[in-house]
Amino acid sequence: MESSRPRELGTGLFVLLGFAALLFLATQTTDLDEYAGDEGYRVTARFEDVAGLKVRSQVTMSGVNIGRVERIEFDNDRLDALVTLRINSQFSRIPDDSDASILTAGLLGSKYVGIGAGGSDSYLKEGSELQITQSAVVLEQLIGKFLFNKAEEGDTGASPSVEE
């Protein structure tokens, strides 16, 4: 039994090393702290079109991450998308007339919600709704519009455009 001492030490070290590696993976390779609990407060915003926005997308203000998208639902009565945002509690002084828009990181990057500061004296709190919103820009629609305008430009004079 004397000779098994170093072996047991080695085994213990190995198990410890394995769990340390697992801890390293869990903390260094993913953003676990953003999943930790539901601290912060929730506000809602209605959008006509949330194309591409996902649960856990970022909520940013001046480009700084201040929260996450928690839920995206379709409102049957008003026929628009109801998005619930969870904002970290340290950002507690956002004016309640701020606006929310769905933006894209880069040309084809992931969608996120950008909040632009308003000027009101009262602040957003649990359950507030952001009244001023701007929907996602869908690239296909943009290209469609652009092509349509181009075609219209080329037609000027030759035939009246459809809208007239």
Binding site: F14, V15, L17, G18, A21, L22, F24, L25, Q28
Partner: peptide, 15 residues
């Protein structure tokens, strides 16, 4: 028991 622990070590060292 060993294989999952070895896998975690493998991933960490690989990264």
């Amino acid at each position: 028991i060993s294989v999952p622990l070895l896998t975690a070590v493998f991933n960490a060292i690989g990264i």
